[in-house]
Design a protein around this nucleic acid. Sequence first.
RNA 1: GGGGGCGUGGCGGAACGGUAGACGCGGCGGAUUCAAAAUCCGCUUCCGAGAGGAGUGCGAGUUCGAGUCUCGCCGCCCCUACCA
Length: 860
Amino acid sequence: METPMSEHAFDPAAYEGRWQAYWETHKTFRSVADPGKPKFYALGMFPYPSGSGLHVGHPESYTALDIVARYKRMNGFAVLHPMGWDAFGLPAERYAVKTGVHPAKTTAENIARFKHQLKRLGFSYDWDREISTADVTYYRWTQWIFLKLYEQGLAYLADVPVNWCPAQGTVLANEEVEDGKYRETGDPVERRMMRQWMLKITAYADRLLDDLDQVDWPESIKDMQRNWIGRSLGAEVHFGIAGSDARFTVYTTRPDTLFGATYCVLAPEHPLVDAVTTADQRAAVDAYVEVAKNKSDLDRQKGGDKDKTGVFTGGYAINPVNGAKVPIWVADYVLISYGTGAIMAVPAHDERDHAFATRFGIPIVQVVSSPEGHDVQAEAWTGGGLSMNSGPYDGLDTETCKQRITAALEADGTGQAKVNYKLRDWLFSRQRYWGEPFPVVHLEDGTVQPLSPDDLPVALPHVDAFRPTDDGRPPLGRAADWVQTTWQGQPALRELNTMPQWAGSCWYYLRYMDPENTSLPVDPEVERYWGPVDLYIGGVEHAVLHLLYARFWHKVLYDVGLVHTVEPFTKLFNQGMILAYAYRDAAGNYHAPDACEQRAGKTVTFQPAWQTEPVTTDWFVKASGEPVHVRIGKMGKSLANSVDPLDIVDRYGADALRTYEMFMGPLEQVKPWQTSGCEGVYRFLGRVWRLFVDGDTGAVKPFGATSREVRKALHAAIKETTEGIEALKFNTPVSKMMELVNACGGELPSRADAETFLLILSPYAPHLAEELWARIGHDHTLADERWPAWDPAALIDDTVTIAVQVMGKVRGTIEVARDADAATVLAAAKAEPNVARHLEGTTIRKEIVVPGRLVNFVVG
RNA sequence: GGGGGCGUGGCGGAACGGUAGACGCGGCGGAUUCAAAAUCCGCUUCCGAGAGGAGUGCGAGUUCGAGUCUCGCCGCCCCUACCA
């Protein structure tokens, strides 16, 4: 059945492995700090080595970075392009709980697999710098950095509410909780106060916000971080409580509306709820607070404006600006975790307060002028205006009024200007086994002592079971010998919590610079050369947490003198997700893309069981001929549409996969995988092969003379490739190289031009480029060759085709000399038959000549 | 609700304010082949037999000229959310 292929036919499998071995043995891509060279640090977000292996999304950003890295090397840069593993994490631990297999074993296996897969894609990593966050030689420095944080007063223990899952006996991260249940198992999750390590990221809020201005990041990501930090400028205002000396404080961004406060609201958890509640309201308030406590945050937010709930406490507050008595309510739309957990409610100028006031019949008093026709009784006016009903402040614009009222509050001690943040301190402990142990001990007197850096590392002890202990302590409690220790001669207990997965990824980019260092996380001298990361590419899902945490640590390390810049990642770029088509039959079953085919012209309509609308399609299951509905979605098991990158490598080779992933479309865009498109790229690479290699003899075909047309295509391709890589637009260069090969028509140009083509092809398809480079007589890799320059003169033709428009519509084209003057062009344009026809009987009012482009006649 | 992004052929996508649809897929036709695969060449936005006309989500506007700029809608995607 198998036709024996000519041994000289295009066969990537025949040489790709050989070149990967060559690069490895020759250490072609070793990063060497060279003070005589500019440096470039290209970094991809390192993967979590999951059990399911590499997916087709990984090679997208990795290929883009690899192209940049190879390009920069050829442009004389010392390039740092490393790879490693975000190896601590939950899936391995969960797997361990289920199967008893130690996470270290699972993780090592997964890393081996990932590494094998990545190597088959031919990325130019310096594998000597490989790191793993779960390696004790790595995490001892994560612990070292924790000690620095502690030293700086940025790490502390606090009792905080956490997501406690009784069934699992552990605390869950917010993202693991959905609808009050553990996402994986559906076990209920409750709020519980626990003593936890916190990192004081809020101390860096202003710097994290302000320094965003100095980095070259997508504006959308900066905005997401800004929103997350959520700095707002407002005022804290103290409200007295009628009939009591106590007072409570509210936070507002609109102190100018203070005269419009017609009630106050305390969050159900607010400590003063009890004190302000009167006897006759007590039962109602207690009941309300009890219900609110058991509601998850999500449930509390679900209702939106329509059905806000709340209960009057019976108590009254005194508005400090006018002494007015306003009722105090308790309502769960006020969150204890934001601001002061209490608000003054101004229904005329806040939508939430308006909805609440309307529902409970509370007066709405307008204190800021609204536009003509806007009735604040019907809808809140949240914009600015002139103050009214505000005593001495009447007539002031909103900004001025804010300042005056705030100043007045400060003068009489009833309030002050206040900057507030949404950003919370970072909950930094997890009741997990598979993470970095904390370098601290607990003494019998209840104090906590940080270890000396000399005592590091605190190695993760071996345990055989990974569930919490029977008495509810974290899994590390099982390592009894490890837990019992001494500190300066005193008996001490080790910390049973571990650090969250974010910890290791907060500084890995630094370790790559100096992975062998045994006395510091990174030598500041080395960092001064390689840092900061010049280009960081990763998924948008890390837009906030990872990137914010890493920036925070970096700033702390800057403050202690370890790094020399305030920001770690100069340029950030987000690749778009790769989606895939999914094929669903009438019964609702999904079929693998490989099992389906399009039969053009065989369109049928069928009635699926899963929707009322009939479906028209020309896609069918190959084997059964069943029609299938085609849709697009995330790759995954549920749609049966995953594509394994190594299957693609097996069929088409690594170069085709790499080049196709770039050819699909702009890197930042979400785009669907189409294996047929990959095949198109494979064909292109085959044409390149056949351009150089005689299919019968395997000999290199003779070089010829470069035609003018080929020369133009070549220089257009050099230009596009160069500018494209610089601008991270990787798709159009592939088109230009295709055009070049098409222009060659199967005949090699001159040796010099053929070599130039291989050089610009090499970042995309390095194996093929190396193979052909060797076959035409080179005995050394092309990775160190000089990137070619294009000749602008080669792009210019002697004659140009010019479009001729009449009233903006193209009516014909003319061929003129490139440097023809306007008069000549106009004459030729008017002579064009179809143009002449459209000009007939009209008066030319205006003649527009765009040299080398077009002519437009305005007639009337 | 807020923030960001996107709407172009059958499909993925190209287009300094200047010939819309490069390049690729798919399709059609041809060459090669005993035949097929592979390969090579040509055609392929839509309507129309043709001349020609229409055309970048919809509607206005600016301009000699708009996929591109402005305003207003419609639709889709992502993020975020009672943040006071």
